[in-house]
Design a protein around this nucleic acid. Structure first.
Length: 284
DNA sequence: GTCCAGGAGAGGC
DNA sequence: GCCTCTCATGGA
């Protein structure tokens, strides 16, 4: 059984493949399959609706895909007269930010430093397959992301076997800290943006970029603006004409220019830079 | 074989 | 404070 959700101006494939989450399986015309937390879900775009199976996962999918948000307000909140951003939005207007479960977002982005998207995906799928609960969607087996306790008890050495390299210690220590009950990621929901940043930076291996990814993709803080190598290049080339500009000045510009929905602006710029013709090539 | 990836931390200055 | 080096691995 399936249910569906209204999804005007929404692009499911672009959203699930835009480097926010890494575990969705592309089933072609059948859509996509993956777990949202412990829940196995099938998602398929049918015009301006998203078909969800099983039907009981409808509200989980609505939350995950942020189909409850006023996306018009997001677009209206972008800086006026920014032709670079307008071009990126026009390239893929249906791109959205996800609202991911906190731990799997943090753990996945802890593995992301100096890794290509394809490899982050490989690591995510291995963690799920080896340590997570196996869930079923029809005849399809899907791995849920392992909870902190499962990652903690697996040990750092085991994580290294999944290709995490030096990041294994980061993921393991975060898992131990959370599994021990020292802190809970849910505590971050009540913090303001600056406090949440500080909270996330308290995890070893989390710097400003990863903290902003988690603030944006899990906590729904839409002003958070992760600056990675792609975005830094876009800013230098498109906003500063390739001129020499320090990283500090770049970050100051970001905070001043993009506003309350900077995270969304960032995702449009990132997606455009990575995938559009003339920009993608094999590398930036 | 070479280059680089949705970075962070430590050390030197 | 900023600059540089190192960390581990695999895709392009």
């Amino acid at each position: 059984m399936a249910a569906d959700l209204p999804a005007p101006n929404f692009d499911l494939a672009a959203t699930l493949n835009s480097g926010q989450a890494f575990h969705w399986e592309d089933l072609g015309e059948e859509g996509f399959a993956g777990c949202i937390g412990e829940q196995p879900v099938g998602l398929r775009q049918n015009g301006e609706r998203i078909v969800v199976r099983p039907a009981g996962a409808r509200e989980i999918a609505r939350r995950y895909l942020r189909l409850d948000e006023d996306h018009g307000a997001v677009l209206a909140g972008f800086p006026k007269g920014d032709a670079v951003l307008a071009e990126a939005v026009a390239y893929c207007p249906g791109l959205r930010i996800l609202r991911q479960p906190l731990w799997e977002c943090l753990a996945t982005f802890l593995t992301s430093s100096m890794k290509q998207v394809a490899h982050i995906r490989q690591i995510s799928l291995r963690c799920r397959g080896e340590l997570g609960r196996s869930r079923r969607l029809g005849s399809l087996a899907l791995g849920a992301f392992p909870p902190p306790a499962a990652v903690a008890s697996a040990g750092e050495k085991r994580l290294r076997e999944f290709g995490l390299g030096y990041r294994a210690g980061f993921v393991h220590r975060a898992a131990v800290r959370l599994a021990g009950g020292e802190v809970r990621l849910e505590e971050g929901e009540a913090l303001d943006d600056a406090e949440l940043l500080e909270f996330l930076l308290s995890f070893d291996g989390v710097g400003e970029k990863i903290a902003n990814c988690v603030r944006l993709f899990a906590y729904g803080r839409l002003s958070a603006f992760p600056v990675d190598v792609w975005i830094e290049r876009v800013l230098r080339e498109r906003y500063f004409g390739g001129a020499e500009i320090g990283r500090k000045d770049l970050l100051e510009f970001v905070g001043r220019h993009f506003g309350d929905y900077g995270g969304y602006a960032q995702q449009y710029l990132f997606h455009h830079a990575r995938t559009s013709r003339g920009n993608s090539r094999s590398r930036p």
